[in-house]
């Protein structure tokens, strides 16, 4: 079993809270966006109590920082851009998994077309990587800066994330003569207040006519080939670091003591 945590730290010095989460929730791989904490400081903080200790997995991707409880040779780099890092998770006696991490352009600086175009290009990069490596056991995780229902996330030309396993297990569909592989996007099930989890990972009360209030920008998408290793109950939006809450009194992400995003945690039963 390998446990992953993704969190957009919002540029905050949250190493202590992250270390608490890593220890309390048994996290093996930390994938971070907007992490301004120096790798040395992060390692020192994470490894105060961690057994086994975390290693930093450096790369050229400026927007993503990765720490894992195993050495670099088990998570080698395959492809990187400023916003995307694709690594091969090759642990002993387990099937190799491609871990693609991303921090998509913010809605503050990119309109819907830009975001769609980013997703379309990302989809091409992932398919190209899968073709070169020879399997499609791919997990895509990060801050998408878009909801699961937006064009870049659902369109066949984009990431093609669908809301049920049953559809995803069809593997692909053909649109106007071109075949497009599916991702399963389990985040759909986490919207709204029908569960104990918060209604999203990011809260924004827009002043215009259209306001979702809660958004799920922080997501994990899985290819059908990874689904045998994933159970929906192993995916959660975290509301605490295991000791202290990440929410304000109003039940929103507490920006004073944490980030404006809530972390997501998921496991792969490899």
């Amino acid at each position: 079993m390998t446990t992953f945590l993704f969190w957009n730290l919002g540029g905050k010095p949250l190493a202590d809270r992250l270390a608490r989460m890593a220890n309390n929730f048994g996290v093996d791989v930390l994938i971070l966006a907007e992490c301004d904490v120096a790798p040395g400081v992060m390692l020192e903080t994470l490894n105060r109590e961690a057994v086994p200790m975390f290693h930093h997995h450096p790369g050229q991707c400026e927007r993503i920082a990765i720490y894992a409880r195993f050495a670099n040779e088990f998570l080698p780099l395959h492809y990187e851009t400023e916003r995307v890092s694709i690594r091969r998770l090759s642990l002993p006696d387990t099937p190799e998994i491609l871990i693609a991490s991303l921090h998509s352009p913010s809605k503050l600086h990119a309109d819907e077309f830009d975001q769609y175009e980013f997703s379309r290009r990302l989809s091409g990069i992932i398919q190209d990587s899968e073709g070169k490596i020879g399997h499609s056991r791919t997990v895509l995780v990060g801050d998408f800066n878009m909801n699961p229902f937006e064009d870049g996330a659902v369109s066949a030309g984009g990431l093609h994330g669908v809301m049920t396993r049953e559809i995803a297990m069809r593997e692909s569909r053909t649109v106007q003569g071109s075949q497009h592989p599916f991702f399963y996007n389990p985040m759909w099930a986490l919207f709204g207040d029908g569960r104990e989890d918060p209604a999203g990972t990011y809260y924004y009360a827009a002043s215009g006519y259209r306001a979702y209030f809660w958004n799920i920008f922080d997501q994990v998408l899985l290819r059908p080939a990874v689904l045998p290793y994933f159970r929906n109950e192993d995916l959660k939006i975290l509301t605490s670091d295991g000791v202290e809450t990440l929410l304000s009194e109003k039940g929103l992400p507490d920006k004073k003591t944490g980030s404006d995003h809530l972390p997501i945690i998921f496991k792969l039963r490899l």
């Binding site: 040395g40 490894n47 200790m53 975390f54 290693h55 930093h56 050495a71």
Partner: peptide
């Protein structure tokens, strides 16, 4: 060495 430096230097 890694254990003693908290993996800052391995």
């Amino acid at each position: 060495l890694g254990e003693q430096t908290k993996n800052l230097v391995e």
